[in-house]
Amino acid sequence: MYCVQCGKKINEEALFCSFCGAKQRQKNIGESKDIEVTEEKGNKVDTSEGNNENELSSSVAEDGQNSVEESTQIEDETNSVGKETENISGEKANDKTKSSDKEEKNSNWGSWRSLLGPIYYFQEGLWKKGLLILSAVLLASSILISLFPQLSVLWTFLIVYATTFEYTSSKDIERKKQDNETMWKELPPLFNKDTVAIVAIVVSVLVLIISSENAGKSQLEESAEPVVTEVLQDNYGLDYTCNDVNITKEYENNNYRAAATLDDNSVIHVNIETYSGDRGNFNVQVPYEEAYLL
């Protein structure tokens, strides 16, 4: 240690200089040391506080970054949900559009059901119903033709066919949509078999053919009555009127043998020939031996 007055080296614990007697500042030096120590501690405290502040700032920054990341993630999820919602809405819209298109197509297709009845039923997966209805149409036409032989076979069938399918097709399609019904519940389960529908259509076609043949014969018989009367009166000079003609035998090449009943209940046999299978265009022949007997 050195004297604060003369600058000579003295004992470190001396209060006064041994050379000039000046009072030394040991206390001040201690205080300065204390101050320095305190300042050092303060710096350390400040440093630690600064570190804490830095840590807090870092933590706040990290929290902020995490918040930003969470916000970004939430926004991404929201956008994803929004896109999914848009996709679902788009799919629903597409489904509605497809459904509308299908309904419109079915509506347009349904306008043809009266003419394309069985095909309409096939298209809707109700082919057994379609065949059974067609069988009923054929049988109904056969009955009408048998009762009224003068009716046209073709027109009778078309009228019954169009009327039936126009009514039944809309009802059956509606029942399928509501109850998924493919066969009428009112009928026995037997009618739901494939073979029954096929047999029914085959039998009904045969019945219609037979009925048409019989109706054609009946119409030919009815048309032949006035012709027999005309032949007897004009060709043979006989005053007879034909009241009934009944075909008894059918030959090849559209030739028939018939029994003609006259107004006096006498019966003669006549020959009838049609041209090219057309019963509306025919010729009646009364054999001489039959007229001679009258």
Rank of each mutant, 00 (worst) to 15 (best):
C3A: 02
C6K: 04
G7H: 02
N11W: 04
E13K: 14
S18A: 14
F19R: 09
F19Q: 09
K27I: 14
I29S: 06
D34C: 07
I35C: 01
I35E: 06
E36I: 13
V37I: 09
E40M: 12
E40A: 14
N43A: 10
K44L: 15
T47G: 01
E49S: 12
N52H: 08
E53Q: 12
E55P: 00
L56N: 12
S57G: 10
D63V: 09
G64H: 10
G64M: 14
S67I: 15
Q73D: 08
D76S: 12
S80N: 10
V81R: 15
G82C: 05
I88T: 09
G90L: 06
G90W: 01
E91L: 14
D95Y: 07
E103V: 12
E103Q: 10
S107F: 09
N108S: 14
W109Y: 09
S111V: 11
S111D: 07
I119C: 01
Y120I: 03
F122Q: 06
F122H: 05
E124Y: 11
G125M: 06
L126A: 00
L126F: 00
G130E: 02
L132W: 02
I133P: 00
A136Q: 00
L138C: 05
L138N: 10
L139R: 01
I143P: 07
L144Y: 03
L144G: 04
S146F: 10
S146W: 08
P149E: 08
S152Q: 06
S152G: 13
V153Q: 08
V153N: 07
L158C: 03
I159M: 00
E166Q: 10
S170F: 09
K177Q: 11
Q178L: 12
D179V: 09
D179N: 09
N180I: 03
W184D: 12
K185R: 13
L187C: 00
P189V: 02
P189L: 01
L190T: 10
F191R: 07
D194C: 02
T195M: 03
A197C: 08
V199I: 14
V199A: 11
V207S: 05
L208F: 14
I209S: 11
I210H: 03
S211E: 08
N214K: 13
G216M: 14
G216W: 05
Q219I: 06
L220K: 04
L220I: 05
E221P: 04
A224E: 06
E225W: 00
T229L: 02
V231Q: 12
L238F: 07
T241I: 05
C242T: 08
C242L: 01
N243D: 13
D244C: 00
N246Q: 05
I247R: 04
I247V: 13
I247W: 03
I247H: 05
E250P: 02
E252W: 05
Y256M: 01
A258H: 06
A258F: 05
A259P: 03
A259I: 08
D264S: 11
D264R: 11
N265S: 15
N265D: 15
S266V: 09
V267M: 03
N271H: 11
N271M: 09
N271Y: 10
T274A: 14
G277A: 11
G277H: 06
D278W: 03
V284I: 12
V284M: 04
V284A: 04
Q285F: 11
V286C: 05
P287W: 06
Y288G: 07
Y288F: 10
E289I: 04
